Amino acid sequence: MFNLLKRNRRTTSEYIFDNLNLFIMLVICFLTLYPIWYVIVNSLNEGMDAMKGGIYWWPREFTLSNYKAVFANQGILTSFGVTIAKTVIGTLTHVLFTAMVAYALSRRELRGRNIYMFVGIVTMFFSGGLIPYFLLLRDIGLLDNFLVYIVPALFNFFHLIIFVSFFREIPTSLEEAAKMDGASDIKIFLKVIIPLSMPVIATIALFQGVYQWNDYFAGIIFVNDPELQPIQTYLYKVVAESSSNQMMVNAPGGVANKSVTSQSIKLATMVVTTLPIVLVYPFLQKYFVKGMLIGSVKG
């Protein structure tokens, strides 16, 4: 009994180490979360007053004029609609297409399977470059087309590897039993494999959903039509260009509204475009971690 208590008793060095780790984690959490809090606080403060500085924890002159100016702009509402559409459609099509390819590559009887896997792995490290990619999308008619968000994102080889690892753990006896009942490969995939693969499907859907929501590059390079640009591209233009000045004109009261400045417009736009995914992500974190472990450990 004495030896057990002695083993459970922490030494001074262990106590110091644990508390030092706790302190470092708290510092990291603060450095991560405070910039987000700073942007939110300043976006809720009167614009001209915020330019004086000194606002760190709470709004000094609370106002919602910045957010009224943001939502008064029809462009941001259109961009939200584009982002929601491409996130939902892009995620569903990506999961279905990648799962179909992964299921085929997980079958050991597939001829040339190792060659396909090797070619796919090469594409993870090497690409043709942006200019050939742009010319390809132009030649197949995807520039200034909503499908530019969907078709190129149908397949991701990293996600395929996760799918393949999971599919290989499904007992082949289930497929053999389905074939004896007269089921085709497509029916086996839809009726047997998909229902058993909901954990990995949820994981890949979260991966792709977050990517689709945060993607701004495609809207900058491949889309010139403002009606087809997603919310993250809209945020880029507000921050990097002069779109915030136009939003000031459209604000309630127009340019005469002294409580709205271009800087306050930018901050409010940042909050509107990033807060939805920031709020959702902590609840989905466990699926991201699980997705990285799927297929790595059997049993």
Rank of each mutant, 00 (worst) to 15 (best):
G253K: 12
G90E: 01
L206T: 15
Q285F: 01
L275R: 08
L92C: 14
V119W: 14
M117P: 11
M48T: 08
A50K: 04
A153M: 07
L235R: 06
F2H: 12
N156G: 15
H94Q: 11
M100K: 09
Q208W: 04
N114G: 04
N156D: 15
M51C: 07
S165Y: 06
I170R: 00
G291A: 05
S296T: 08
F166G: 00
F217K: 08
T78C: 12
S65P: 01
V122N: 14
F189E: 02
G141T: 06
E61S: 05
I89W: 07
S173Y: 05
L31R: 08
H94W: 02
K266D: 00
I131D: 13
T203N: 15
L4P: 05
F23G: 06
F2I: 15
G47Q: 13
I194W: 07
K298N: 13
M124D: 06
S184H: 11
S244K: 10
K237Q: 14
T269L: 02
N145K: 06
F155D: 04
L160D: 07
E169G: 06
F167Y: 06
V238D: 00
S184D: 11
R108I: 02
P152V: 00
T98H: 09
S13E: 13
A85S: 14
R113Y: 01
T63I: 14
A183R: 09
N257Q: 11
V210P: 01
L293E: 14
M100Q: 09
A72R: 10
G219K: 04
L279T: 05
I150P: 02
T11C: 03
T172V: 09
T98K: 04
T78D: 06
V95P: 00
D49S: 13
L137P: 03
V151Y: 07
D181G: 12
P132K: 02
M100W: 05
L31D: 01
V239Q: 09
S127R: 14
M117H: 10
F222R: 05
K266L: 04
G219Q: 08
G291C: 04
L279E: 01
Y133L: 15
P252T: 02
A178H: 10
I220K: 14
I40A: 12
Y103M: 04
I161W: 06
G53C: 13
T98E: 03
N19F: 10
R107V: 01
F23D: 02
L174A: 13
A183M: 10
E175A: 10
G129S: 15
L267M: 13
M1P: 09
K187H: 12
M270G: 02
K290C: 06
D139H: 10
L136G: 12
G53V: 07
V101W: 11
P152Y: 08
K68N: 04
T274K: 01
L190C: 15
I221M: 13
V151Q: 09
S165W: 02
D185I: 02
P132I: 05
T32D: 10
T172M: 09
A69V: 00
F125P: 08
V41I: 13
I294K: 06
L135Q: 13
R9T: 14
T91L: 05
L235C: 03
A205T: 11
Y211W: 15
N257T: 04
I204Q: 01
T87W: 08
G295M: 08
F125A: 13
F2C: 13
A218R: 03
R107N: 13
W213Q: 11
V297S: 03
S259W: 08
E241V: 03
D225Y: 05
N21V: 12
Y211I: 05
Y149V: 01
